[in-house]
């Protein structure tokens, strides 16, 4: 947990990241930045999906609609914060010449997306039948 707090401090303090080890090949940093942006796009897509569920499934029961939308929005928020944290950790690992950090997050996110997708199929089919 203290590691996480230290990372949060790094989010706002560029000098500290630069203080770790020598400046790496700029291409590594740019590749890390693109990975960060790809995760941020995923987060924005999840947030957009949250808005879309609310708007394009108007016949759904309100509780289901709000629940699904909030699940997608929560996933989007988690995804964006994790993108930032992972970017900081990778940047530091590159500077120190360590292995890049391993992560369970992709597996977790796929599970959440799969559960939301199955829930949506069930809800839409139930609404169709009823």
């Amino acid at each position: 947990m203290s590691e996480f707090v230290r990372n949060i401090r790094l989010w706002f303090a560029p000098e500290q990241v630069r203080g770790e080890g020598p400046t790496p090949d700029y291409r590594f940093s740019l590749a890390n930045e693109r990975t960060f942006l790809a995760w941020l796009r995923t987060a924005l897509a999840l947030i957009g999906g949250g808005f879309a569920v609310d708007q394009f499934l108007p016949h759904l029961h309100r509780a289901w609609r709000v629940g699904l939308a909030l699940a997608l929005l929560g996933a989007g928020v988690l995804c964006s914060l994790r993108a930032l944290n992972h970017w900081v950790r990778c940047e530091r690992a590159i500077r120190r010449g360590e292995d890049l950090p391993a992560s369970r997050f992709p597996a977790l996110l796929s599970l959440v997306v799969a559960v939301v997708a199955v829930a949506m199929v069930v809800v839409v089919l139930a609404g169709w039948a009823g």
Binding site: L10, W11, F12, A13, P14, V17, T23, Y26, S29, L30, N32, E33, F36, L40, A43, S80, L81, A83, L84, W87, V88, E91
Partner: peptide, 11 residues
């Protein structure tokens, strides 16, 4: 490299 402040602002 991207400044952490910019990354944080975007997020």
């Amino acid at each position: 490299a991207l400044a952490p402040r910019q990354a944080t602002a975007a997020v």
